[in-house]
Amino acid sequence: MSSQSRLDRAYKNAKIISFDDSSKFILFSDCHRGDNSFADDFANNRNIYFHALTHYYNEGFTYCELGDGDELWENLHFEIILRAHKNVYGLLQKLHAEDRLAMIWGNHDMVYRDPKHVKKQLSFYFDPKLGKDVPLFPGIEYHEAIILKHKDTQQEIFLLHGHQVDFMNYVGWRINRFLVRFLWRSLQVIGISDPTSPAKNYTEMIKVERRMKKWIANHRNQFTIIGHTHRPRFPEAGELALFNDGSCVHPRSITGIEIENGNITLIKWQIATTEDGTLKIIRVPLEGPQKLTDFITD
């Protein structure tokens, strides 16, 4: 099956979520939450991420995670990740309980495409204080893709991780997982990057974007938002509508995409220094806001 056929299938089987101009969504991807070791890229930004997600929770946003949320290539078991970032999962748990959590699987958490695995691993966790299993994400579902469909304009926003156009990270993901788990994870600690990742291989990144653009062009400029490459992307109105929310493992910052009041905005959360020397986490708009309707194709 070609990459274009895989995208067609993802679009056809996508979960549809209705929204309107009063809806609020925050899109993050590529968190790569790990075990809090030197190989855990998320650990450097976990306080920024937690602060940002707390803001969105308090402001009534729905959280959409576009894949690679959990780093399940480097880590064998989810329980290790849960213990390392318990406060983050506590907040995600509250979002799930309020039906404000939408999850997509990527290549690094591709095991979540199996509903049985998701139910077994994520429904409950063992609480050592209580000495028993307690609910975590009961009834949670992971999807390959999600379509946000506007109730009034019928505009569709296609959300997916984007590794569907990356053969070795979709079809050959088990091979890459083996290499990362038993080779590149150890080398990462001493600063050697994983060449299988499009986020660290410019040539692969360009290939992913080119294949995504081809599919979008063949589908009447279908509004599409992906992750996977870690490179934020925000096109101008009239250009091919390929957006990318970036990642949560940038050096000292995270990027994401907000959809609010019928607009889309690329944002960054980072640590800034005030005049008196105090460190503060701030939100910085990078691109937008741009009207969603500017990307409607007749």
Rank of each mutant, 00 (worst) to 15 (best):
V118W: 02
E65C: 08
V284M: 00
P235V: 14
K149H: 00
R233W: 04
G277L: 06
K280G: 14
E144L: 07
F243V: 00
D109K: 13
Q188G: 11
D109Y: 05
I192W: 12
R185Y: 04
F223K: 15
D245R: 05
A237H: 09
W215M: 13
W269Y: 02
M103H: 05
M168K: 08
I267A: 01
V284C: 03
S193W: 10
G238A: 14
G69H: 02
R83Y: 08
K268M: 00
I175C: 06
I282N: 03
I175K: 00
P232A: 00
R283E: 11
F137T: 08
S193M: 12
Q270K: 03
E141G: 15
N47L: 11
V171N: 08
E287W: 02
V88N: 03
F234R: 01
N176W: 02
F234E: 00
L286I: 04
L148F: 14
F223Y: 12
E141P: 06
G288N: 07
D245M: 12
M205Y: 15
F38V: 07
S247T: 15
T203M: 14
F137Y: 15
S18P: 03
E209Q: 06
I16Q: 04
H230N: 01
H108R: 15
C248M: 04
F126Q: 06
M110P: 09
H96S: 10
D114P: 01
L160Q: 06
D294H: 09
K12R: 11
Y202K: 13
G162C: 00
S29E: 11
S186F: 06
G131P: 15
I48H: 05
F42P: 09
Y11L: 14
I104P: 02
Y56R: 04
W173A: 11
R9Y: 04
W105S: 10
D21G: 01
M110N: 15
K280T: 08
G238D: 02
A272I: 07
N87S: 13
K12Q: 12
L159M: 08
E209N: 12
I267V: 09
R252C: 09
F126V: 03
L76W: 11
G131V: 10
F28Y: 15
I271D: 05
I264A: 11
G191S: 05
N75D: 05
E209M: 05
F50W: 07
N176V: 12
T62R: 14
R9I: 13
C64V: 14
R211Q: 10
D30E: 10
